[in-house]
Structure formats: C-alpha cells, structure tokens
Design a protein around this nucleic acid. Sequence first.
DNA 1: TTGAAAGCGCTAACAC
DNA 2: GTGTTAGCGCTTTCAA
Lengths: 335, 335
Amino acid sequence: MKKKQTVTIYDVAREANVSMATVSRVVNNNHNVKPETESKVLEVVKKLNYRPNDVARGLASKKTTTIGVIIPNVTNSYFASLARGIDDIAEMYNYNIILTNSDGDHKKEMKVLNTLYSKQVDGIIFMGNELLDSVRTELISERIPVVLAGSVDPQKQFASVNIDYQKAVYTQATKLIEQGNRKIAFVTGGLNIPINREYRLKGYLDALATADIEFDDSLVFDVSNINYENGYQLKDKLLSAGATAAIVSNDRAAAGIINSMNDSGIVVPDEFEVTTSDNTELTKMMRPTISTITQPLYDIGAVSMRLLTKMMKNEEVVEKNILLPFGVDYRNSTK
Amino acid sequence: MKKKQTVTIYDVAREANVSMATVSRVVNNNHNVKPETESKVLEVVKKLNYRPNDVARGLASKKTTTIGVIIPNVTNSYFASLARGIDDIAEMYNYNIILTNSDGDHKKEMKVLNTLYSKQVDGIIFMGNELLDSVRTELISERIPVVLAGSVDPQKQFASVNIDYQKAVYTQATKLIEQGNRKIAFVTGGLNIPINREYRLKGYLDALATADIEFDDSLVFDVSNINYENGYQLKDKLLSAGATAAIVSNDRAAAGIINSMNDSGIVVPDEFEVTTSDNTELTKMMRPTISTITQPLYDIGAVSMRLLTKMMKNEEVVEKNILLPFGVDYRNSTK
DNA sequence: TTGAAAGCGCTAACAC
DNA sequence: GTGTTAGCGCTTTCAA
C-alpha cells in the first residue's frame, strides 16, 4: 500500500499564481484577501483536493487543536457519559480528543500526561477520584489549561465541573430519615478519596446531625474497589450492622446489594431501602428500579469542554469551579 | 498563564557537545552511538528535562504514532469495551488514540475521517454497523491501514476482527428449538445492516431449516433504533405473533422485553424465553439473568489494534479477517 | 560513530 | 491585499 502523494500549500500557491501566505490566509479564513483571489485559490484547493496538514500547522503555530482526556475507564458508563459530552463539544469547537484510560493508577496518569505533553495537546480534561501530589505537580508543570470533570479538588487549584455532592447526599439521607430509618448505611468506594470523605460523607453526617441521630461508624462501609460483585457480597454485613437502608455511591454496587437482598428473600424496598448516585441506565433497568441522585453526566462533560475552550483561547472565565444542578429521583428501591 | 519555555534537541546537542543528529539517535534508541556519548547525552537530557516534540517528529518522519478510532457511541458499553481493548494495546505499542463518536451517521463519519486525515493519523479503527459506499471510498482514499472492529464487511475489502455471528445465532436458535419452541421471534436492529441481514438472520434461518421448521416472517422484528425502550414496547407484538421465545441482538432491548414481560405478569423463562448477544454487564445484573452469546469484546478491540500495528509497520499479516471464538451462556432467561 | 544540512508543510512577522 | 522569508523541532540522507 503506497502512501498517497500529498498536495501541499506550495502546490496550491503555484497553481493559483499566488504566494503560500495567500493560500494560508484563504484556508484560515483570514479576511484580508481580495474576493477574486480567494475564489481562485478555493477553486485550486478543490481541484487539487488540498487538505491542510495539521501536524505542520501545529509545529508552526504551536497549537494542535487536540486535547488530552484522562479517564479512569471508558467501560464505566459514568465516565463514558462524561466523555461523550466532552467529545461533542470538542467537535463543535473543532478540537479532537486523545482518550487515555488510567484506571486511576497514578503511575499511568503520570506516564500518560507525559505522552500527552509530547503530543503538544492544547489542554487537558482530567477525570479521577484522587489527585496525588505528584500528578498535581505534573498537571501544572506544562502550564496548559486543565479542567477536572466530575472530579473534585478540595484545594480548588484547578478549574472543575461537578455537582454539589454534599448537598445531594444530604438530600437523600434526609429523605430516608423522614421515612423512619434510623440506621442508614453509608457505602462508599474509599474514604481516602476526597469526593467521598470531603463531600459525600459530610452530607451524610449533616443529615444525621440535623435529625439528631448519633453517628455510628459501624454503618460506614468503605469498599475500596466498589463494583457489582462487592456490592453483592455486602448484604450480610449490612444486615448484621442493623441497617434498614443504604446510601450507595456507585450504581453497580447498589445493583449488587439489591440483587443479593432479593435473591435471599429480603424485599427491597419494604425491608431494606437503597439509594445510589450516578443515574446510569442500569438504575432504570433494575427491578426494583433504583432511587438515585440524577447527575447531568453528559452536561458535566460538555461544560468541562466548553470551559476548557475558553481557557485555551484566553477568554475570560467568570467562575472556574462550576457546580451544575442535580436532582434526586425516588424510584422503587425506596418507599 | 505563560507557556513554558521549551527545551529543544538543539539545546541538548549544544550542552552535550554533540550534533542534533546524535541526540536524535540516542533519543530514538538507534544503536550506532558510542556508549560514552550516549550516556553523556542522556545525562543532559535529564538535566535539561528534555522531552521530544512529537509534532515536529511527526512532520519530519511522517509518522504520528496516533491512530483514529471511529465509534458510534462510547456510551454504549459494547463499543466502550472494544475501545478499552484498543487503548490498552495501543498504549503497549506506544500509540495514542483519537476517539470520535459518529452515531453511525455517515455524514459525521465522512467529516471525522477528514479531520483524522488532516491530523495525519497512522491508521484507523472503524466501528459501525454499516459501511456506506461514500465512507468506504473515503476510507481507502488515504491509503493508510484500516481495521474494522466488531463490524463486518461482507465484501471483505478491509481487515476486520469479529466473531462468527451466523454460527452464534444458529447455536442459540437450535437450543431454543430443542427446548420445544417452534415460534421463535428474531428481534434485530435493522435488516438493512449487513451484520443482521447477512449473518445473524442467516444463522436463524439455518437453525429453522435444520429443524425443519417453516420460516414465518411475521416473527422477524426489525427495530431500527434498537434500545431498552423499544424493547419494552415490543412485548404485545411478540405475544400476538404467537412467539414463545425471542433471539435479540441487543442486550438493552432484551432487558426491555424481559422487564415488560415480568411487569405484566408473564414469567420469563417459564412462559417466554429470551436470549441476547452482547454479554454486557447488564445481562448478569438483570433478574432473571439473561442468556447470551459471550463475545470477547475486549479482545476484539485488542486484536484489532494489534492487527493495525502490524499493518502500520508493514509486517506480514497472515489472516486479515479474524474470527475470534465465542461462547453461548445459558442463564435464567431460558429454561 | 558522528556531523552537516536539507527538508517536512505550514504560520507569522514584516515588507511592499 | 499580497509576497518574502524565517523559522517551528525534528528526522534523515549523505559524507566524513
């Protein structure tokens, strides 16, 4: 397979009897070109089937119109939804995304950042549960715009787009309390992670405090690798801790808990209530359907990308830590 | 935010008292360099924190170590799994992927292909249900390697990685027939799509023929936009056509059918059996769990990428249309 | 084993 | 409004 012979800006210039600079102006919609010249150039562009080489452009202009997206795992529909929002807006602004999976592994994050920098990306959207110091340092080292999407940074060092997780959990917990639950389990994927420790857990604690319920730390379940299987395994512990409801921070884990309850004859929601937080499609497909925080996942991605375009173009950014509105849907896993 | 001052190969050369060519050789692991020279250069590289500029490299070498991945929708876990396999192998071979969503829209596919070509990608992995002629033409026009992942091309014009869909459906249908079903619905997302028309449907017909059951076309349900909701709506039609089982080509649609059956008191699998084909996580989370073809999704992506690396390096490719082994898992949506 | 030098295809001053 | 020209940072002959 022989590679196609490429048509360059020089070929167009020669054929149209103008200079390369003029062709460049036309191709880049620079208006300082006489209409007749422009149409002549355009004609030749079409005739020769000229397509600008973005790599050469990138080298000359130091802009690649490519951004890096670091995602723990595309296979996780929470992140996939964000990625979709990002890509759509990127396309709208003529950017492309280089997508890389990190598995939330800091070594991989470091490595990936380095290759993204080598590729001269114009900006970075970072998703991850945690921002290790080394990664943080690396992230600012190149001095290109960075936005955290659906990922919190308590230090607020970076621009970010999220919902108010603390308030969301507070709302869920309060509702469960109003329904008579006094022992509500809090199931989370690692309290070492800021989003869980600094926001979700606080929302839970706030609700308890408001209702004058004493905090019982045996009701906090810190499941480091939170997934369906681990959720499924959790049933006995939940029950023996005396919990009558659970606030879960991951849809698949919530599904696991519900299935394992039902599989052993415990009726959800009558005997045990469950709420979750991502509103992935799964929450509607499960029986019972799962009550959940409704996060605008696509929008979090979309807004992140929009914010990044502003930063890349040095436009004014009024608020760099954006909180999008959220909802709480009560479905059939709660009374 | 001022952009960081960049260290170039020239800086390293000067500081190490060698030529740019030598630095280039060292950085690229070209072995024709005296060990002492090499270590001296490496030292300076480290000291100056030199990082090669891939854009400049790409311009000079005409290789970007970046490939384009065209995917209908990352949000669909079938494709997300493929994408994950692709990215992992890409990383292993030091490639990055530019990911773009096409929604299976041919206009978008054309547009995206053009921007990928502008970005000088070294290869393309294409996913999509259908290969329109215009897209086909565009796909070969640039003469760079292309692999279809989880996407068939009856004309076998492109390299591809798939499973034997015909045989898979044949296996499922035969099993349902053995269990006594005579009226088996075939639910598919568009017979205009080759994979459904040329492979899946044929597998279904083969099974009927083998069992000497006459084909009844009122049992074929052509749902163009196949998803959970449309599956859910299908129940009445399925029942009034007299079907006692359904072979569905999409997990979410199968979930919809099952939920709607159960929601209206029809017991799956006792009164109606369902099989599906993607083995996404959902099939295990549903109650009843769904019997399904088990496709090695991750591997399809991984093998596609591996194949592409071979093509990009002009290595010999023994078989360009790869069929990976599949299985059929019988779970609780069948007797 | 090393260096010199010519590009790769484009943009961006700057000059006219 | 248009052209000239000097790079952008690197790879790759070719020659030594």
